[in-house]
Design a protein around this nucleic acid. Structure first.
Lengths: 364, 364
DNA sequence: CTGAAAGCGCTTACAG
DNA sequence: CTGAAAGCGCTTACAG
């Protein structure tokens, strides 16, 4: 028995049928530790020294062991918050583009996206239990900013979250990706001013939405800077819907001194404004200029094609996805909120005001 | 040893620490077979008698053992075929609504949807390997009709498929869900005829698409039945895009004897037609009536709101989902192709023709 | 067609 | 902080 060789690599003539490559046993061997230890790292136990953990983590990653997933492949959860703002439960081009952007970014990274609509606390609970069990690389939450309780649960389950376009003011408790709404409102208004408009109306979305308030703020800022006073009668507020835009536009056009340009709160509202014009036999930009917000894909479908403020939806989704994965040691990890820039896209619905000549209102 | 009780439920005083309930061991015990046999059923082996298999299958299902999934919860794959028809890779309200419908139907059944864009054979291969490994309840393929080779692979992996709106003629080799495109084209045309139109133009989508041909067929059918001859100059063909619709409408409106109504191949084209009208200072339905096809959510965004043929996208997704799960013993299992009915949705873009009076073409 | 047996990959108390 | 040992859930040749 004394002759038994110590377990040197060469001790066995036939290399002892080395275990499957994606295997804990194999990784343990490579790392020079026991399987138990590897298992601990995999399960996020705390009783492993930082050094060992790091060494094992690296091997794990190298062997395509997707951390945070018991599935063997990367999964990211996309939670679709169905709030009071999303009217028809996701039948919203805006949300759809976000989904698409996420799927795109994830698939490029070899990940799959699990889409789950979450409209109640119970549904959230159910999703969480499932996600914790199967493992996930994290959750991307559209609009819904998880509160304290939810955050605690997510943390306990070790699930990172990034919120996309938080409905409320983003704080430091959750990471989030937004867009420069204030800038968007500002640049859209400046564009109209540069075209010569002075009577510029603005239709805002629900005040509960953070983005909505920021956009309106941008409008006020641009008016102020141009030395134009804001006529409060030209300010409207309604749902982020076609109907909302149509109703408010109708009101504005009935004013004794109607506006020559209307800044809508989002593209849906802008389509509504166009409908109101159309119903009166008026045309954009000839009679009234119209600007949208979002640059949803269908903005180019409008007649005329909509001048609008572009929100880089796909880039926002991609950034959120990257933030999610940046949990460990990345520099992005410490940034709580990122805002991507909006850009004004000038198309055919804006132009100079009718001018002093006549307001071109002949009916029929 | 003769005294050993046969294994009656009551034989053991203390019920031998019964194994976890979602467990093969447990199910084996319940079914009165060995774990091996249960394992075989679970893995789709053939060497199990039908009786035993059935008994075990039922227990498996009862215990929440999601058949076809090693994940412990239901997953359905949604494959987004990015073909020549889907221009901007999914930025298509039509596809988005299908995604949404699937997510909805699946989540009601407690399933999650894994969305994967598949644009090449290599990507399909990659998806298949992954799906086979993790297990899936099946794949829903949008537009793309898998060919012989793919079908063989899917079958080998034991993954059921249902195609939604097959791009080509659906055969008996794959199950599929479609919509009554011919009927849709027919009813839209009849609607225009009933309004008094006789010079009705039709813009068709790509002829490679099965649905596209069927819609055009419906148009021809309705014209024929009404005793109207089809003026071939009023027939156009272009991509399923806004641009396609705009271009063809421009051509049609330049005709010596322009149409009083235009039937578009889909809603995107209809928006394009509206743009062409708008650019000429014409309005729907006053000057020209316009009908779309699909009733995508944004159809109501048009100015005027689009009269269109509704494709029950959400219901199609739900049906496909149900067909997928109907693999075992369901009556639906034997049906290869299901077509859901289209319905004409009359909104504001159609009306009687300008009439004999004048064609209301005064410019400016 | 069925199951006993060997074995794989992983996890978890527990001793050090 | 680490790993030997026991054990769980599953699969797979293989004997009958």
């Amino acid at each position: 028995m004394a002759a038994k060789a110590t377990r040197e690599p060469t001790s066995a003539p036939v290399p002892a049928a080395h275990p499957g490559s994606g295997t804990l046993t194999r990784i343990a061997a490579d790392a020079g530790v026991s399987v138990s230890t590897v298992s601990k790292v995999l399960n996020g136990r705390t009783d492993v020294s930082p050094d060992t953990r790091e060494r094992i983590s690296q091997l794990l990653r190298k062997h395509g062991y997707q951390p945070g997933s018991k599935l063997g492949f990367g999964v990211v959860d996309l939670l679709l918050g169905v709030g009071p703002w999303t009217m028809s439960a996701g039948h919203d081009p805006w949300a759809e583009e976000l989904i698409h952007g996420t799927v795109q970014a994830a698939s490029e990274a070899g990940h799959s996206v699990l889409v789950t609509p979450v409209s109640s606390a119970a549904e959230f609970e159910r999703w969480l239990a499932q996600a914790a069990m199967r493992g996930t690389h994290g959750a991307l939450s559209v609009l819904h900013l998880p509160g304290g309780a939810e955050l605690k649960q997510l943390e306990a389950a070790g699930i990172p979250v990034v919120v996309i376009d938080p409905a409320e003011e983003p704080g430091a408790t959750v990471r989030s990706v937004g867009t420069t709404n204030w800038q968007g409102g500002f640049s859209a208004t400046r564009h109209l001013i540069e075209l010569g408009h002075t009577r510029i109306a603005a239709i805002a979305g629900p005040t509960t939405l953070w983005s909505s308030r920021a956009r309106l703020g941008g409008y006020r800022g641009a008016m102020l800077e141009a030395g134009l006073t804001v006529d409060e009668r030209l300010l409207s507020r309604d749902a982020f819907s076609v109907r909302g835009g149509r109703q408010q536009a109708a009101r504005l056009l009935d004013l004794a001194a109607p506006p020559t340009a209307i800044l809508a709160g989002n593209d849906a509202q802008a389509f509504g404004v166009l409908q109101a014009l159309n119903a009166r036999g008026l045309r954009a930009p000839h009679d009234v200029s119209v600007v949208g917000f979002d640059d949803v894909a269908v903005a180019t479908w409008a007649a005329p094609a909509l001048t609008t403020v572009r929100q880089p939806l796909a880039a926002m989704a991609a950034t959120a996805f990257r933030m999610l994965r940046a949990g460990d040691g990345d520099t992005l990890a410490e940034t709580h909120h990122v805002e991507l820039s909006t850009t004004l896209v000038v198309r055919d619905s804006t132009g100079p005001p009718p001018g002093a000549v006549d307001r071109a209102r002949e009916p029929r």
